[in-house]
Design a protein around this nucleic acid. Structure first.
Lengths: 100, 100
DNA sequence: CAAATATATGAATAGATATTCATATATTTG
DNA sequence: CAAATATATGAATATCTATTCATATATTTG
């Protein structure tokens, strides 16, 4: 893994913003238009577009034009799996910290 | 997933820094002392400690004292799985972007 | 207790980044 | 082509964050 730290961190950094994470989440159920994502998330179209640009540059989403709309979807299944793994993590019971 | 966006993003944000990711990577093979991690990563003990503090606050690592050393290890297997999923992602062949 | 070693913490700061606003670039339709 | 709709882009900025340096807090040992 050490070999990929830079790229890995880059991807995680992109996942690390709540707004952008919501945008990405919207791309999970198949291609969605920018405007639709904006509406569903309550973010401005401009901001959604900015975020999608970054996600796309990192190959985390794919874009395809449909008429005058741009539709974005997850690039592959790995991201989806990552999201689910961490959701599990959050639901897991955790001990109190007794070491401090 | 939407329910956990805030917490999810928080975890991803912590994974999104190369130095911190290296620190976390060091915690994968069982408990390791701060000084060891500093040596192995080339980061200052102070910086390693700062990063571990954040990782610990997010319950991503656990600490236990061993003599005068503090040993840190991954808190659970989910993080490890996340790291591996994304490593796969990076190794996957990708098409050229034909939509732009 | 004092000295030495290992971590932790706090303040300061240089650099990054999310968001907004204004504007530009497609695409469709008349 | 002009108007309307959907995205994209660039600049500006307020906020955040990684890193460093100085200092404090354990823990062991003499």
């Amino acid at each position: 893994m050490i070999e990929h730290v830079q790229e890995l961190a880059e991807i995680f950094r992109l996942l690390g913003d709540p707004s952008r994470l919501r945008v990405l989440d919207q791309c999970r159920g198949g291609p969605r238009a920018v405007g639709t994502i904006a509406t569903n998330t309550g973010l401005s179209p401009s901001l959604v577009s900015h975020h999608l640009r970054l996600l796309r540059a990192a190959r985390m989403v794919r874009a395809e034009r449909k008429g005058r709309e741009m539709h974005y979807a997850l690039a592959d299944a790995h991201i989806d799996r990552v999201l689910r793994d961490l959701s599990d993590h959050l639901e897991e019971p955790h001990d109190e910290d007794t070491t401090g």
